[in-house]
Amino acid sequence: MNDTLVGTVPISATAARHPPGDLAIWVFILAELLAFGVFFAVYAIVRMGHVELFDAMQPNLDRNAGAINTVLLLAASWGVARAVAAIERGRQAISGRWLGFAILCGFGFLVVKAFEYAAKFRAGINLATNDFYMFYLSLTFFHFMHVILGLAILIGVWAKTRAGGYSAADHHGMETGAAYWHMVDLVWIILFPLVYVMR
């Protein structure tokens, strides 16, 4: 019972009410969710006025690539969650391996997306093609950039884990990086059905 007391409430008890990770990353996550929420709203509202165009263009998207990328992001999130679970038990090597798995999945997402973009560019599709492709390219690229940032964070966390920088007692930094990565996954969970499937 080493909890420091604030009045009659232990600090550890009040801290447990916050999500894992640094509070600052959660403020950043909320700002990111707001930005994506606005993007999704604008897409949905514009689609409302151009249903025929959106329904005619959407079958041209590569749903297999979209689904593979969904699996890769979910697998990466699973790996990150398993890494946190491992470090909670003080198993640094296992935690590092799960983070490595997550990073590989994240890079897999970027590769699949690059092939998807290349196919569209070869077909002469760009931001000016029509409203649907403007949204498809800008929305997915906005997310693509977040995957890159998430990967940079995960690589930093992985390197620190490999160097023994986290332990069962101190893994706040890993939880902070994990929270950001899961946000990237959460956004794609909406983006995939909205842009690739809903008609």
Partner: peptide
């Protein structure tokens, strides 16, 4: 999305407000 929020982001350990 709810599963990711609750189980991966671990908001099930956070307050109702979060």
């Amino acid at each position: 999305g709810w599963l990711v929020i609750r189980e991966f982001m671990l908001l099930r350990h956070a307050s109702t407000l979060w």
